[in-house]
Design a protein around this nucleic acid. Structure first.
Lengths: 255, 255
DNA sequence: CGTCCCCTTGAATGAAGTCAATACGCGTGG
DNA sequence: CCACGCGTATTGACTTCATTCAAGGGGACG
């Protein structure tokens, strides 16, 4: 099933039954499994498919010459990994599996066909790309302006919002299979300091983190300490205004 | 003239004479002037045009509730500002003018027409969007992993590469109309500390910065201290492989 | 039951931030 | 032509948040 993708796109535009059926069939393409801590795709490669994550978590990451590593994005079920594949010549970063993952490898023709027969779904995919850009900008703010505790709180808020959008958050609890080291590589903070900050968040009853489960008992409070505003995720079906337009020839990413 | 845009797109794909002619006419759309330090577009608005910068510099920026401000991108001549306009409901950030600027306000129809009649140019615009994403990811690395001196050196390398691609770098010198305060808001460093780092870069003969001109006498040396690798800009016309494909129905951003 | 990975804690160090004052360059107006 | 004002750049002294170094603890798994 590609249920997570469908749930996400449902937040963007109003999909037809036909669109939904098409999304389900996407998950039957060319399934691939990748073990935890392996790379799906490496910097420099030019893969021939777009990977849709069906199950498990992955990261976009890049290593500097001297070994420092930055995680630039977390990819969760319903996310498409390698947008660039059919345009850019090669990957400028790698994608690694955080857990064992299952992906569907979508061929170019699938997208050509969506463009022809499912214009609204195409709009939703463009929307998704723009949201990725917005998320990346928000990370820039996070790393540039926020303190360690704010950064981590903000990231947790974001992950909760995204997981909720794909149906992976129940009762204020999410399965979030990342280590404190992963978190440190995403936030640009030392693992040791991440640990201290996590203790602090626990001390203030803002999060409960045990094993791979994070529970947020008081989301408004967490959002306040993170100064989190979810507008950049562009969820909440504010895309109803697209319903009228079915043109297939919108600008790149839908300018 | 929209010469800067044409020069940039030339780095991505092989444009036809017809495409080039079309780009030139873009610059005749609906010209608007904005004074230095004013916003072109504010967070929350939904503008009706895509702004193409013909002359001057702008920034994407966002302010936190408590007044901290982050610059998330520098926009130079040839850049398109507000991709989201025809898809997303409202801006999640603002765009401000660093200098007096001139923009062409492109209507939706212009893009519809490009999609129909200039497929290769459309590819180039999608490419440009993906490069923006890549730049934003690189900023994430910059802020997350690099020291103050590396960050500033890296940003200067990036600006030089981008300016060169649109014909605005001569003899290792660029006109870069930003203050040290702007630089501090882009790199997440204090203005005071930016100053010290700039002194240090001067001391090591890596840059000469006077007024609004920056000269880099030894680019390889600057790149070394920044650990700069330009692969993420995807310049160098590696898009020749797109020449064969003229389909208008590529996926969003060209997946 | 040992080993590996991850989490935790303490103490010392350091890079960048803060506070505060001064200097420079440039356009305006007397 | 010079004084004034304003934004920007510069410098010094002190502080702090986060890093570094180092060591110990706990749980899962073979």
């Amino acid at each position: 099933m590609a249920d997570h993708l469908r749930l996400k796109l449902d937040h963007y535009v109003r999909l037809s039954a036909d669109d939904r059926a098409r999304i389900s069939t996407l998950a039957q393409c060319n399934i691939r499994h990748v073990r935890s801590r392996r790379d799906l795709i490496r910097e420099g490669e030019q893969p021939q498919f777009v990977n849709l994550i069906l199950d498990g978590w992955a990261v976009r990451h890049k290593m500097l010459e001297d070994g420092r590593r930055q995680i630039m994005a977390f990819l969760i079920p319903g996310d498409l990994c390698d947008l660039d594949v059919f345009i850019l010549k090669e990957m400028d970063h790698s994608i690694g599996a955080l857990t064992d993952i299952t992906v569907a490898q979508l061929p170019r023709e699938a997208f050509d066909e969506i463009g022809r027969k499912h214009p609204r779904m195409m709009q939703a995919l463009k929307w998704d790309l723009l949201v990725q850009l917005a998320i990346q900008r928000e990370w820039t703010i996070n790393l540039g302006q926020r303190s360690a505790i704010e950064r981590i709180a903000h990231l947790i808020c974001e992950l909760f919002a995204r997981l909720k959008a794909v149906g992976l958050c129940v009762d204020g609890t999410c399965h979030i299979p990342i280590t404190q080291t992963d978190l440190s590589e995403a936030t640009g903070i030392t693992p040791v300091h991440v640990n201290r900050v996590v203790q602090e968040l626990r001390g203030e009853k803002l999060i409960e983190w045990k094993g791979r489960e994070i529970h947020v008992p008081d989301m408004p409070a967490l959002k306040r300490t993170a100064m989190f505003n979810d507008n950049y995720l562009h969820l909440e079906q504010d895309g109803a205004h697209l319903d009228a337009s079915e043109t297939g020839n919108a600008p790149p990413g839908g300018r």
